[in-house]
Design a protein around this nucleic acid. Sequence first.
DNA 1: GTACCTCGTCCAC
DNA 2: GTCCGACGTATTCGG
DNA 3: CCGAATACGTCGGACGTGGACGAGGTAC
Length: 583
Amino acid sequence: MLYSDIADVFDRLEGTSSRLEMTSIFSDFFKGLDPGSLRKIVYLSQGRLHPDFYNAELGMADKLVLRAISFTAGVSESKMDELWKKEGDPGKIAETLMKNRKQASLFSEPLTLEKVLKNLTMIESAEGRDSQDKKMKLLSNLLMDSNPVEARYLCRIVTGRMRIGAGSMTILDALAEAFGTKEDRPDIERGFNITCDLGFVAETLAIGGVEAVKKMKVTVGNPIKVMLAERLPSISLIMDRMGGRCAMEFKYDGIRVQAHIDRDSVKLYSRRLEDMTSNFPDIAAELRKQCRAERAIIEGECVAIDKDGNMLPFQNVTHRRKKHGMDQAVEDYPVKIFMFDILSVDDEDMTLRPLGERRSKLNETFGLSDMIQLTTMEVVNSPEEGEDFFNRALGKKCEGIMAKSLSQESVYRAGSRGFLWIKYKKDYEEALTDSFDLVVVGAFHGRGKRAGKYGALLMAAFDDESGKYCTVCKLGTGFDDAFLAGMPDMLDEYLSETHPSTVDAEMIPDVWFLPTVILEVVAAEISLSPIHTAAKSIMKDNAGLGLRFPRFTGRVREDKGPEECTTVNEIISMFEMQAQNKA
DNA sequence: GTACCTCGTCCAC
DNA sequence: GTCCGACGTATTCGG
DNA sequence: CCGAATACGTCGGACGTGGACGAGGTAC
């Protein structure tokens, strides 16, 4: 099969923003494919070579792809750099350079799907000495034989950013249209949610039709798409939405784990279905010990604790995400798991049962211990009770709460975000959270749909002692299109050719500004930062303070001069306050 | 050759 | 993780 | 009563901090 046929379809998809049209483009294309190719093409259309959970990556992203393009087209690194800043998309750059080249290579053969897959697979498996060069040349080898459109999507497949506007949900629509009817769509989606393998679902449909997909079962050992929660900005809105009554649960600040217990083997999967068994061997063993069923799938949150069993901030549990020296990490960073759901017990699918039933099943299936606990959960009947519960959650160092519907329809909706579960954190309510007035000291060029604009800003607080502006975060979300478009007008008059002497920064932006413009920023919390310079080495050696989940509130503080912005001292006291509240 | 640092990539949130 | 915008569909409004 | 306007949910794609790790470079 010719790769150009596939690239042309991607090109047509990118040309429309209508999901209905994308669906029919995909579905027409799918119908003509043999099942094996279909499977591979479905992966490619998502910028992948395998399903999400596949345990190997290409190890090639923007920078390495740019190197491959520059090697292929014979363009200097500095020219590449300039193009990268302007275009914000390696695919576009490759396309343009392929258009401009004088002559396609003389003996070039048309690229086939097989050839593309072969090289991509080799890129994936290259490792060790000179592997970066090898990866680069394997991609270059493909680009050499590409026409401009083919080159665009080769680069995008490798970086995993297809930018065709069609994600897995659109593919599922198309699969239903191609191999079934609209009524089959829920069954097909469920097939995806319990296998997590879009290509496999496509292949199964093409071979055995909807009947074959309906036969797919929740299986211990195969990760299931996790259920996600919607957000709402206040407890009372949540209670309205829930019809005045719901279950509330502490929302722990750790890593979500889906545990598959099967006789003597236990597998742990992350939210994005990566295998994390080796990272929490203690949890895996203890779950087996406490599980009274032969087989089960449960979900919980793994949280780091101190020696007294008190919960620690998120940063601690991330030390468990390592490959080497796990034994030491298990000792140094003890954890607990708080279980909150059960998806299967002894081969009985629990996902379609209502929440209450699942919770009782969870209770009766597991014994508890220091390491294995249940999330704190209560039935809440009014906003006041909800507020009270929320405050108790914060007191226990939780991030906030999850509200869960108690209706009979409250099933485990694998793979979807909906109002059956609603999360609430303190920083969702602006009145409850501290905001920061930070000065813009630099900017980064945007990528993709922000190409040619500033994609993010470098933000700083004022340090009265040194008289310098110290960085605390980048800021790249909360901007609407108008603000994004107006940024150059607002900022460019303060452009500085060099790193301003008044700015203390280790992170180097694409452009510098003289500290002038102040924006209001909210964040979830303040964390120790290895890169930001505010309060450097004051709280901890070689660490500064940074913001977690920073976003723009939409307010430009034109009323304030730069020296009136939030100070480093204020951030230090907020950080101390935050640590105190949690102790 | 080794020890250490930087850069890029990936993934948890 | 947060956030914004486009689309599609359901619901309400107005002639 | 029907077409137009509005409201709402879904989906996709921008962007954030921080830790770990592998590759590659450099200094000794």
